[in-house]
Amino acid sequence: MAAELTAHHRRLAQQKREAITAAATELFLDRGYDGTSLARIAEAAEVSKSTLFKQFPTKAALFEAIVTESWQRDSGDVGDTATRPEAGDLRSGLTAIGNRYADLIGRPRMAGLFRIVIAELPRFPELGRMQFELGKLPYFASVQRYLEAEHEAGNAEVPDAESAANQFLGMIANYVLWPRMLLTGWDPAAADVDHAVEEAVRTMLARYAAAPSA
C-alpha cells in the first residue's frame, strides 16, 4: 500500500512538473522571459506557488529544466551504449539517428524553445548558453561518439567526427527546424521529412563509408 501511494505521489509530481514547464514555455513565448513571473506561471499551470517554488526556486532553474527536458524527451542518448545503434551498419545507424533527431527538432516545443532564446538573447545571454551547453552540445556530442565508434570498428572513415556530426545533423535541421523559425506555416509531411533524412544519410555514406576491402 505504501509503495502504491509513493508511486501515485510521484505521478502527481510529474504531472505538475509537466504542467509547469508547458505553461512556462507558452508564457515565455507570449510575454517574453523577463515579462513572465513565477507567480503567473503557477497560476497558468494551476498549481500553488509553493509547489512551483519547491521544484523551481528561480526562473533560471525553470528554463534550465525546459531546455534539458526538451532535448532529452523520448530522444535517448545515441552515444550511450544502451541506446546507441550497434556498430556494423552505418546506413542503418545513421538512419535511426537521423529519424530520431528529425522527430525531436520537429516538435512545436523545440521550435518554441529556439524562438524564446533568439528573442531574449540580447538581454539574457545566459539563455543561449543553457540552450547550447545543456541541450544542443550534449546531443551533438552523442552523435560524435557514435561516429567515432563506427570509425574505430572500421565501418567508416571519419577522421573528424565532430565536424561529421555537425554536417549530418545540420543537413536535417536545415530542412526540419530552421524554416519553421521564419515561416509560420512550415509543416512538412512525414514523407518529406523521411526523404530529407534519407538524403542526409546518402550524403554521409558517400563521404564517410569505409571503402570495401579488396
Rank of each mutant, 00 (worst) to 15 (best):
A2C: 04
T6I: 13
A7S: 13
A7N: 10
H9M: 11
R10I: 14
R11T: 08
R11F: 09
L12T: 08
R17L: 15
A19P: 02
T21L: 15
T21N: 04
A22F: 07
A24V: 13
L27E: 11
L27Q: 13
D30R: 15
D30Y: 03
T36A: 09
S37T: 14
L38M: 14
A39V: 08
R40G: 01
A42N: 04
A42T: 02
E43I: 11
E43N: 04
E43C: 03
E46R: 13
V47N: 01
S48A: 12
K49V: 03
S50N: 02
T51D: 08
L52Q: 05
F53D: 03
F56Y: 15
P57W: 13
T58A: 07
K59Q: 15
K59C: 12
A60E: 15
L62E: 04
E64N: 11
A65C: 06
I66V: 15
T68C: 05
T68N: 02
T68R: 14
R73M: 04
D74Y: 03
D77S: 13
V78G: 00
G79Y: 04
G79K: 05
T81I: 11
A82W: 04
P85W: 01
E86G: 06
A87Y: 00
G88Y: 06
D89Q: 02
R91D: 08
S92N: 00
L94I: 04
L94S: 02
T95M: 09
G98W: 05
G98D: 03
Y101P: 00
A102D: 01
L104C: 06
L104K: 10
G106M: 07
R107F: 04
A111I: 15
A111W: 10
G112C: 09
L113W: 13
F114A: 14
R115D: 11
I116V: 15
V117G: 07
I118H: 12
A119I: 08
A119W: 06
E120R: 10
E120D: 15
P125W: 10
R129I: 13
Q131W: 15
E133G: 10
L134I: 12
G135W: 08
K136M: 14
P138M: 12
F140K: 09
A141E: 07
V143N: 02
Y146G: 01
Y146N: 01
E148Y: 01
A149Y: 02
A149P: 00
E150F: 03
E150I: 04
A153F: 07
G154Q: 05
A156T: 01
A156V: 05
P159N: 04
D160Y: 06
A161T: 06
A161P: 10
S163H: 06
A165N: 05
A165Q: 07
N166R: 13
Q167E: 12
Q167M: 13
G170Y: 11
M171R: 14
M171L: 14
R180E: 06
L183E: 13
T184S: 15
T184E: 15
G185W: 14
G185I: 09
G185N: 14
W186I: 14
P188W: 14
A189D: 11
H195C: 13
V197L: 08
A200L: 05
R202E: 14
L205D: 03
R207C: 05
R207E: 08
R207K: 11
A210S: 03
A211W: 01
A211P: 00
